[in-house]
């Protein structure tokens, strides 16, 4: 039985191991250690939820706490990446992208192309996303589709501890700007994670369950809900194939299309809002490239087109869940 650690520990271990292996890797963000200039303990937090805890003392001088100046430090991480470092900057909540987006989408994303292929920007921007903490409209969004829209960015959305570690190491070693999305609800999820260093490549979806009846493509936290739904559906004789793209840019189109060619039925599960989303993107892909295979209309299980609400009853209605996925799969499976 392999070692089990949490999603959060897996991310910490990936940072620790890559910092140990490669002196050009640095970490920066708001309170990534915590306590700078304050009278109490240093490394008081290790990030707002403790993900980077311990790195400050293990790697002296290479964990930089920043002022609350996202535009400045995210931009600085990008600049440092242009000059030989491999910074991992933390944008605490992805909702804060608004105060630094220019540096990401106009600067980092475009250097390579604008400069005629002569630039490399090996920066990683780690960021938390997702509902479930009753953290309301400005701390709960799933904005990966906005970043996926921008050419030049790679976008990673790990759904489990194993992938979180391997994809983060891959992100750090990758020579393009990578936006690494961490679901805050998944931080406590446990899973088998090798102690050794390993990578998980970009653009290769994981097939988490094989089945012939309905393809479910799910992202991030939704992958677990899809698995729960698929287990229940199997008792009704509906066999689902679950695909976790793992990265939305690049997107493993082939695995999705191959599966739909087999099943002819697709449900896309995405915690984000439905318009111009990964759900609509994947649905569009399948309509364009596997139209002939489709035996039923594609269903999307997403949050509604509203901001994340605060009250627990509303937030629970807002986020997709296994029951909603089951209903969508059943509709798709029964469509004739």
């Amino acid at each position: 039985m392999a070692r089990k650690i949490t999603y959060q520990q897996a991310i910490n271990e990936a940072l620790d191991q890559e910092m140990s292996r490669d002196p050009s890797v640095i970490v920066m963000g708001e309170d990534n250690a915590g306590g700078e200039g304050s009278p109490g303990e240093m490394d008081a937090w290790g990030g707002v939820l403790g993900v980077t805890k311990g790195l400050y003392h293990k790697h002296p001088g290479r964990v930089l706490d920043t002022p609350i100046s996202e535009s400045a430090f995210i931009g600085a991480a990008i600049g440092a990446a242009c000059n030989g470092l491999r910074p991992v900057a933390e944008l605490m909540f992805v909702d804060f992208m608004g105060v630094c987006f220019d540096q990401i989408f106009n600067q980092a994303a475009k250097f390579r192309y604008m400069f005629g292929g002569k630039a490399e920007t090996p920066v990683v921007i780690r960021t938390m996303y997702g509902a479930g903490f009753r953290a309301a409209a400005q701390h709960s969004q799933c904005l990966y589709s906005l970043f996926t829209h921008v050419p030049g960015l790679k976008v990673v959305v790990p759904s489990n501890p194993y992938d979180a570690k391997g994809l983060l190491i891959e992100s750090i070693r990758d020579n393009d700007p990578v936006i690494f999305f961490e679901n805050k609800v998944l931080y406590t999820m446990e899973g088998e994670v090798p102690e050794e260093i390993y990578t998980v490549p970009f653009g290769e979806a994981a097939i988490l369950r094989e089945g012939d009846d309905v393809t479910i493509v799910a992202l991030g936290r939704m992958v677990n809900m899809a698995q729960e739904a698929a287990e229940a559906l199997q008792k009704d004789g509906i066999h689902c194939e679950i695909i976790d793209p793992r990265t939305t840019s690049p997107l493993d189109e082939e695995t999705i299309l191959e599966s739909v060619e087999k099943t002819g039925r697709l449900v896309v599960v995405d915690e984000a809002n439905p318009r111009c989303s990964m759900a609509s993107d994947i649905a569009g892909l399948v309509v364009r490239k596997a139209f002939g295979a489709l035996k039923a209309p594609i269903e999307q299980v997403t949050a509604p087109h509203v901001p994340p609400p605060f009250s627990d009853v509303l937030e629970d209605l807002y986020v997709p869940n296994a029951a909603k996925i089951e209903r969508a799969v059943t509709r798709v499976a029964e469509y004739r």
Binding site: E30, D31, G34, E36, G37, S38, D65, T66, P67
Partner: peptide, 13 residues
């Protein structure tokens, strides 16, 4: 109030 989360303005300002 002396602390931006955990960080003092002695450091950040």
């Amino acid at each position: 109030n002396g602390y931006a989360e955990t960080t003092s303005p002695n450091y950040s300002v």
